[in-house]
Nucleic acid binder design. Structure first.
Length: 588
RNA sequence: GCACCCAUAGCUCAGCUGGAUAGAGCAACGGUUUUCUAAACCGUCGGUCUCAGGUUCGAAUCCUGAUGGGUGUACCA
């Protein structure tokens, strides 16, 4: 609608001798109950037009109608200038969009973005919180790619540390050599099982010590199991062969398990980083910071940065014994990533409980004068709440990712079989369909909500398949495909109509927004805007479909046009849902 | 204590840089199929946008304060 803004500027210039810029003009979609396509808000102009809003709107409307061929008419209601754009304009838009390959996706802009997501710990299986993270990360990467960037998806695996040693120790003590093969358990679940066992045994020891009269925190520190796992961590750091072997073996089980989950979830990565390789990084940055006077050393020789001037606290960046803390290695890893890829932007998909950490991390890198620090972005998403409250691994109130996927697919199966539309499907086709629908429902449910907000998830109340859902969009796609299949011959490519009706125009307008939606979603790292757009589009199509016969048309040209319009809609639904990691079925 | 985030219909959520009578879905109730897939379409019901001030021609949106909820504030990650 750029041309309307330009002409409005011209109108204001000629009529009121006032020079404005594009940002002074507010355009909005005309509300459904009024006639028109776009509305110019003229209230701000009354200051220098020295006339009432109604008169001002009237004058500008006249000017636009006289000077812009695409503007067919206008009306003024309560000071709002509603502009009616000629159908020929929309027919033209449609013509352009329909003939653009990959309509909506931007050509390469030569810039590179890294998206880090998933980043699991290797001591337990993935749960619902990870699912949100993975779906968000994958989707954001897809969207950024569609907006013209080259995208590198990375996974920074937390494969070392005390939590891993706990699982290892428990397995050593209580595992009797159990393996994924011998137990039939998925590797990550097997390791997670021992993490839970550790916790249980550890608590027993704490209770015993308390019974002997120790205080709670003393007991926690003195329990043999915790001491042993700390020793194990130390041995790991020294490179003790037996410990390293055990660590490698158990991690390999976990990776095999994660890969299954990632596959089922439909996510993937271009580059893995492992903390076992990066945890020592960052120490030269500490030196650099000390030299530059950004950091300072305390008498006990620990290193700090003073961020009080920025409204934050003093923050430790290196322990007094010279070892790294979390932020030390994150500083190092940030630099490593940049050295590896020289990307223009880098997105961290991490929960909002780490807001403070990333604020500090980015601020430090900026203070160190890293030019690329400005391109760092923390995509901070809200936690997932269950009806019972928040998820806690230790209390067993987590929703396991693998179980969840199975349940979704099973629910999809029941639901679909009840409808009885797939009786002629082969067994393989059915499995494929149930998977698409089950995952579509789950993914849409999680992605339609603004990432920044907390998300309420009720596992018992199985996710809907009707209304504002993934399957609704999938169904719309399948419906279109069905019509196209039935049209048999029809070569509708390149068909452009002479005239269009109201439903057709609305659909064309909806489709026309697709590129803007993608650009906007990429800029804001927000899959929810794509999700909500696709729902509106599907809804609009269903209305069109309901009220406008496609194949049952005497008029051959009209039939072809509607087929073509349907086909473009299907294409947008297909590629749009792919940005959410959702697949669409040809039949359902 | 201090910092940050959130609050919209019974429930789950939209609401773009301030703009018209605040929108969807679910739930509830009613209607639509001899016609291209009824996982659809149409209608009814449902709101003091947590509260109180302020800025403005105009505030769900911006500012201040209060209340309620969440998170962080480790020589943990």
């Amino acid at each position: 609608m750029e041309f309307i803004i330009q002409k409005t500027l011209e109108a204001v210039q000629t009529l009121y001798n006032q020079t404005l810029t594009s940002s002074d003009i507010t355009l909005q979609e005309t509300r459904k109950e009024f006639e028109g396509d776009v509305t110019v808000v003229v209230f701000p102009f009354t200051r220098f037009s020295k006339k009432s809003p109604d008169v001002t709107a009237q004058e500008i409307g006249e000017f636009l109608k006289q000077n812009v061929t695409e503007i067919a008419d206008f009306n003024v209601i309560k000071g709002f200038l509603n502009i009616v754009i000629d159908d020929s304009y929309w027919i033209n838009r449609y013509k352009t969009n329909a003939s653009t390959s990959n309509f909506g996706f931007a050509p390469s802009n030569g810039k590179k973005v890294m998206v880090e997501y998933s980043s699991p710990n290797t001591n337990k299986p993935l749960h619902l919180g990870h699912v949100r993270n993975n779906l968000l990360g994958y989707s954001v990467a897809q969207i950024i790619g569609a907006a013209g960037y080259e995208v590198i998806k990375t996974n920074l695996v937390n494969d070392r540390g005390i939590h891993i040693c706990k699982s290892m120790l428990a397995w050593q003590k209580f595992g009797n050599g159990e393996t994924p093969e011998s137990s039939g358990l998925k590797g990550d679940h097997l390791v997670g099982k021992y993490y839970v066992i550790f916790d249980k045994e550890y608590k027993k020891q704490i209770d015993e010590l308390k019974a002997q009269g120790l205080a709670e925190d003393e007991a926690k520190k003195q329990a043999p199991l915790i001491i042993e796992s700390q020793q194990m961590l130390q041995k790991w750091e020294e490179g003790d062969t037996a410990v390293i072997e055990l660590w490698k073996m158990m991690n390999s089980w976990v990776y095999a398990g994660f890969n299954v989950t990632y596959n089922n979830l439909g996510v993937n990565f271009d580059k893995y980083y492992y903390e076992s390789n990066t945890y020592l990084l960052g120490k030269d940055i500490i030196e650099e910071g000390l030299a530059k006077g950004v950091f300072f050393r305390k008498p006990d020789s620990s290193v700090w940065i003073d961020l009080t001037a920025d409204g934050l606290d003093e923050k430790l960046v290196l322990r007094s014994d010279g070892t790294s803390v979390y932020i030390t290695q994150d500083l190092g890893t940030a630099e490593l990533k940049h050295d590896d890829f020289q990307m223009d932007k880098s997105v961290y998909v991490v929960g909002n409980e780490q807001d403070y950490h990333f604020k500090v991390l980015f601020l430090i890198l900026d203070k160190l004068g890293k030019s690329w620090a400005k391109g760092l972005y923390h995509l901070s998403y809200g936690m997932v709440d269950l009806p019972s409250g928040k998820m806690k691994s230790r209390e067993g109130t987590v929703v396991d990712a693998d179980d969840l996927l199975d349940e979704m697919i099973d629910t999809a199966r029941q639901h679909t079989e009840d409808l009885g539309k797939v009786d002629d499907f082969t067994e393989e086709e059915k499995i494929e369909l149930f998977r698409k629908i089950g995952l579509g429902a789950l993914k849409y449910h999680l992605l339609k909500v603004d990432p920044k907000k907390r998300l309420m998830f009720d596992p018992n109340e199985s996710i809907d398949f009707q209304g504002h859902t993934g399957p609704f969009i999938q169904y719309t796609y399948a419906r279109i495909k069905s019509v196209i299949r039935k049209s048999e011959q029809a070569d509708f490519a390149g068909i452009v109509p002479e005239t269009i009706n109201k439903d057709e125009r609305e659909l064309i307008q909806q489709l026309d927004k697709f590129p803007t939606i993608i650009a906007d979603a990429a800029e804001n790292y927000n899959p929810a805007s794509v999700a909500n757009y696709l729902y509106e589009l599907a809804k609009g199509y269903n209305k069109f479909y309901h009220d406008n016969p496609i194949l049952k048309n005497e008029d051959e040209e009209l039939k072809k046009f509607r087929l073509a319009l349907s086909s473009l809609t299907a294409d947008v639904l297909n590629r749009g849902t792919s940005l959410l990691g959702i697949e669409v079925p040809e039949r359902m």
